[in-house]
Design a protein around this nucleic acid. Sequence first.
DNA 1: CGTCCACAGGAATGACGGGCGG
DNA 2: CCGCCCGTCATTCCTGTGGACG
Length: 415
Amino acid sequence: MGNSSVLDDVFESFVNGAKLFKDREVLRHDYLPEKLPHREDQIRQLGATVAPVLRDSRCSNIFIYGKTGTGKTAVTKYVLSHLESKAKEYGAQVKCCYINCRMTGSEYRVFAALSQSVGLTVPFTGLSVGEVFDRFRQGLDQSKIIFIIVLDEVDALIKEHGDAFMYELTRINETLTKSKVAIIGISNDLRLKEFLDPRVFSSLSEEELVFRPYDAGELRNILLERSKLSFQDGVLSESALSICSALAAAEHGDARRALDLLRVAGEVAERIGAKTITEEHVRQAEKHIEHNRVVEALNNLTLHSKLVLLSVYHLNKPSASTGEIYDIYNELCGEMGAGLLTQRRLGTLVNELDSMGLVNAKVVSMGRYGRTKKIRLEISRSLIRDVLGGDNRFTPLIEYKPQASASHKGSTGGS
DNA sequence: CGTCCACAGGAATGACGGGCGG
DNA sequence: CCGCCCGTCATTCCTGTGGACG
């Protein structure tokens, strides 16, 4: 009885204790609400643009811009799902295919996903990109529909693989006889047009739609709407609501961020058995989210990225150069018997760590003394010890004291 | 005012594991 | 089974460059 009663208490308080949530799914950012506050204009505009589809004519291609968490995806899904049900009502042959390009990852997989949505089965790999595209085109033409393709986060794919596939897609209508295609491109990067072939850009942006960031007041309304559905009455304090909106507004008006904060704050409050969600819980949620992000990032690093990060850790100064890092990295590799990569390669690994926010890398010129990246650790040293230390391959390397710094040429620290 | 350092970072290429169609 | 292709990681070779020093 004694032992299990502890656990019983935990479960008990979870089940019977202060229940704050009514439905926490509502606070996930992939939840599609019935109302999208402050986006009425965009909904109307997008709706007007795609409406011709209901009379069996192709609608214009559309380009949608806006930073993360400004409602682009939600508005698009919202409008298209309503469009599809209207189309069913009127008997129009309309089909939509939503693809997140960043998740999908490559041109091949984008075309494969498109093929699947017109009912074809395509192998994971093995075919040439052109072959998959051809199959898709044929399959599509046979299904005799108006096909709306949503390419979300298309900027990510274009920056990595170029815009050749976009060129193919924008011209696909010329080779179709029984079906028609419209493309909705969604980009987080407002400067995407600089990366695009002007022909692709002009055909893609027959219509343009811009999503401005939400301000704190708008975020507040959004959170208020959702909190009615997600929390029990009277659970959410005014101050918690305000601080969530303010924090997210400071971060380029990101509604996704605001919702995450609110949901995690609720979880924090629930876990410690609080009856209401307070400002303090939001602050803890902020730390909690950041902590999880970093831990997950650390765990998913490859062996060599971990070694590079560990080199930065060991050098332990406000700004290390690529050369210095490479020396330490070299030692660590020898120490654990791993083959070592080139300095060229290390450079791009450092850049990856930078874009994950684990490290800060900035190119600076030191004039006569060359040009290099200045690299600084962006996360706490103890976190590195905790997470990497969990892997016993690294345990000795964390305590290891490198001696390289003396041998390196320009290692005079302070300024 | 040119030089020249210590790299940055693009392009081409290759090795490799996974998987195809025939 | 063969020949081919994909995507990923890595190497090799390369040209580019901001600014302190002389």
